[in-house]
């Protein structure tokens, strides 16, 4: 983690522009097709009914903004985050992201159990666009952040790590990527209590450097602590975009009025 963020865009240019974004999913759980089925039944049995998880969503996020996404389960928060991360493609409109992204999504997804922790650090960082030299530079920092247990086992196969140690290493690698935009899906803090504090400190340090944060969370504490702007998603659309506290108030009011 360096202290100065390198931006490619002009200071007043939005770093994320979402225009008329829409994505359609099949309602039936089973989507996977089977040739056998197609031949026997002359078609597929799966439900062709679709729904729009998100539609006509538009907003802009500028440099240094910390945006919290609020909404109930299944309202498209994670889906929106994935489309900004580029790991889902929209069916309508587009999401333009003009800066590099450090996605704190599926933290241990890129690690391979057979390889050592050291090799895994190089591989995962490499997949997120870091060169070997850049990883060399940050290697000690990553290991130090992940903690002494990780350091002791750095050349052991990754599968011998406890699940807690695995996510700690994942968190350490991604937050060292030095990308101007940070996307977080619930996993703002991982591991035991002591490590969670370290995660919070790291997040605050990253934000102080003026990075842009996009946070999906159900924790009101986290949202209030880190975010200044809130987006409230409901029924596949943005129903409110404004001050974080105001958005949370509206969200809580909606929940109260439903129950």
């Amino acid at each position: 983690m360096t202290d100065v963020v390198e931006w490619r865009t002009a200071p007043d240019q939005p770093v994320i522009t979402v225009e008329d974004l829409g994505i359609e999913f099949l309602r039936g759980r089973k989507r996977k097709l089977s040739l056998r089925e197609m031949i026997y039944r002359g078609g597929t049995s799966h439900n062709k009914e679709t729904f729009w998880a998100l539609r006509h969503v538009s907003f802009e996020v500028g440099r240094g903004e910390a945006v919290g996404l609020v909404g109930g389960n299944g309202e498209g928060k994670s889906t929106l985050l994935k489309m900004i991360a580029g790991t889902l493609l929209p069916d309508e409109g587009r999401a333009r992201v003009r800066e590099g992204v450090a996605p704190l999504i599926e933290l241990t997804g890129g690690f391979i159990g057979e390889l050592s922790a050291r090799e895994n650090i190089y591989l995962t960082a490499g997949l997120h666009g870091m060169s070997t030299e850049q990883v060399d530079e940050r290697f000690d920092q990553i290991v130090e952040f992940a903690g002494p247990q990780v350091r002791d086992g750095i050349d052991k196969p990754f599968r011998h790590f406890s699940s807690g140690m695995q996510v700690r290493l994942g968190f350490a690698v991604i937050t060292c990527l030095d990308e101007p935009i940070i996307l977080v899906d619930e996993v703002l803090a991982v591991g035991d209590k002591a490590f969670r504090e370290k995660c919070y400190d790291r997040m605050e340090a990253l934000l102080e450097q003026g990075r842009t944060l996009f946070l999906v969370s159900h924790s009101e504490g986290d949202l209030k602590r880190f975010c200044t702007r809130g987006l409230y998603l409901k029924g596949g659309a943005v129903v409110q975009d404004g001050d974080m506290d105001a958005v949370l108030d509206q969200y809580n009011d909606d929940i109260m009025s439903q129950s």
């Binding site: 994935k82 991360a85 580029g86 790991t87 992204v101 996605p103 999504i105 599926e106 997804g109 890129g110 997949l127 997120h128």
Partner: peptide, 9 residues
């Protein structure tokens, strides 16, 4: 799929 889902290459 875990990697495909978490990286944007």
């Amino acid at each position: 799929r875990l990697l495909v889902r978490s990286t944007n290459i």
